[in-house]
Nucleic acid binder design. Structure first.
Lengths: 233, 233, 233, 233
DNA sequence: GATGAATGAGTATTCATTCAT
DNA sequence: AATGAATGAATACTCATTCAT
């Protein structure tokens, strides 16, 4: 599932990611996926606000009007795009973490991997950030999958925290801020680590504990593998 | 616990805040301030994106073209508005905190007060949040005034942390997330306290220390006074 | 001597000239031609500068935005209009002069006819003049078709002249000046003849030769036919 | 009266030409001249159409409203500017040609000098061309001063031509076309000579005679001096 | 006479959306 | 389902002009 080659072909593949996934599906789904691919392309380049339906359909090689057979408006497409991305990432993480039991470690790995994966495909990151900035709470939902791992850690007696919407929003906020920073300055291990530590601090660990947890995981083969992670494999 | 006595008179005052401040200044400044007042009004109601120059000038009681004698475009006005707000808050805090020496306490008070003050004038909060979501880093600069207090705490040996852009961005992110939440659900002491604690955690305190610091300050007369704080007084 | 029977029916026909030509073509072409007809109408009435896109589309019976499906801006439409006119005139002349061999005579007939035809449709003349005044060199290209006839005359040993851009510009200049005059004072045989003579003088004939060449052609059936020339016939 | 130095200082001088001329005049005249200088500056750079009153007054170092104390609108200023230029050139020529008696030679020298002088100050040329393209007949009046020389030549029996408005317009047209060309490609002796010959051809000389007349004058000290002509001296 | 802030009519241009084909 | 021409509301922005100071 892991692919070490980051060559240009992969980039091309990323631009057709969902369309490729939809091969074999019915025509409606294929067209829909083509639109999402184009949307991610345009959204990431010009921002969601500045993107026009016309440009998206043009890049998709479809007619203007076709868009409206699939989406009510640009907002719906933006939502669908970011959800498709979030789902894809969640699926990838789920597969990889299946044999990881400790809730705290799962939180660290998931956070680290989320940031890392997203940045491997920075068009995806831009869309997630863009959608978050437009509708912070809607998008914070993208992190709700982490809720399960946090609650697992609570049940395991490793975290003492009330898991509520406010907490998830705070976690989403620091992750998104980290993502924005790395979209500007490029991926940085230090930022990845500090962000994970900050999340653990928000979850009630002391700085020392947080650092230890991140260190504990950072030698893990899983994260190593993610260093060269791309979603296409 | 929180005083929400935002009677209409106060609201009216807030809507003319900068114009009132500019009385006695020259005509150019008065008009400019009038535009900022209107902009805050419209921005907070419909969002910066959806606001039209036409509506802003109409509410200001000015001609459309007058806008362009003062601002290049809507972006410049949005920036000017949020900067005017941030400056005003900074000034208010500075005055009140002049006899508070402990850096950590200053950070808590400032954070608490920032959230509290902003919410007393929720139009201001909406503009700050709106501008933050459009230009997160530009606006994060609004929090840079906190940098001094953090560094004071470091110098006093109470914090052990490297104060860099990443840290300030993370703090801004949690504050803004808290602000957004309270703009939705209304001001809540719990959110104010938890947000302050989170900031202290990001600054390297343990959860226990953070809670103690917030508790220590929360009985303080200064915060009490802020309970009924409005900027016009 | 000149037939000015430009009855209203003819005028009406001229106002729909290109639209009429495009009947049978696809919708896109028909709309485009409709816009050109309207543009010629408005341009000739108020000048290219003063014409507004709004007015053009209103007269065309189309929506404002439709314009931008066909032309980037007013300049592009002005260019398209004058080119359509020039092409149409060139086609009309080409057909009529097919059995005229002498280069010099062709130059005279073409010049005379160009001025004459244009004036039969003075809206066309106004557009050509207007576009010429905005972009003299671009529009001078409209006269480049005359280059072939001049070179033919040179090959026939009747003219001794170097045909270069400067020469064509000078010829265009005198023709356009003549056109402007007649747009003010109405068509005049004397102006037509003197302009043709001037062109021949610029081409190197002596005044006597020039006069003789014009006289030689002026009894010609072709010119007679042009006396009552309108493009719809 | 002739100045051989074309250094940058002279350029600066040209930009203040009329203001400098007006030193010693009353304030109203000085302000008016300052406006004309600025107008020539802006008109020549962006074209008359694209120039704004605001920009002209800004460059003049005057307030917006001051403009309207001196001119009704931009058109009036454009006219005043081109007339001021034409008058200045006419004055310069008049002085230099006072001892030249032959009408034909005066026409050649005046034409040659007009083109040459204008190009020495190409901002002037741009304004004259710009104004000509907006109002061809108004500006053609600038050439009416040549009428006297032509009539002198007729009286001397050297030209056999009827001097009427049409003829003057044709001459103006070829001169302006030549000017436009040289504004594009730079001054060229060949263009100067051919233009003068063309004017003589329009005046009824044969090509051979025209060439001889131009050659006759071209060795003349007066033209030689104009090679390095600048208006400031 | 000069100032320059305010005016507001006027225009270009975009773009989501519709609908006949 | 897909097409793509047409729509027209919406908005930004310019700039000549006025007028109180």
């Amino acid at each position: 599932m892991i692919d070490m080659s980051n060559d240009q072909d992969k980039m091309t593949d990323m631009q057709n990611y969902f369309r490729t996934q939809a091969i074999g599906s019915n025509k409606r789904n294929r067209t829909r996926s083509t639109l999402i691919d184009s949307a991610i392309d345009v959204f990431s380049e010009k921002g969601i606000e500045e993107a026009s339906v016309h440009e998206i359909t043009a890049i998709a090689g479809l007619a203007n009007g076709t868009f409206y057979n699939h989406f009510k408006d640009k907002d719906e497409l933006a939502l669908a795009s970011s959800e498709a991305i979030a789902l894809e990432i969640a699926k990838a993480l789920d597969g990889r973490m299946s044999d990881l039991d400790r809730g705290v470690s799962r939180v660290v790995v998931a956070s680290w991997a989320f940031l890392r994966i997203t940045l491997s495909a920075d068009a995806w990151a831009r869309v997630l950030v863009g959608q978050y900035l437009r509708h912070p709470t809607t998008e914070a939902a993208a992190f709700r999958y982490m809720q399960g791992d946090i609650e697992r850690a609570v049940a395991q007696g490793e975290l003492d925290v009330e898991v509520d919407a406010f907490l998830l929003e705070q976690i989403a906020a620091v992750m998104m801020a980290a993502l924005r920073r790395m979209l500007r300055v490029g991926p940085q291990t230090e930022v990845l680590n500090r962000t994970c530590e900050n999340i653990l601090r928000l979850l009630g660990l002391t700085p020392v504990q947080a650092e230890r947890e991140v260190a504990r995981v950072s030698g893990h083969a899983l994260l190593e593998s993610l260093e060269r992670f791309t979603l296409i494999d």
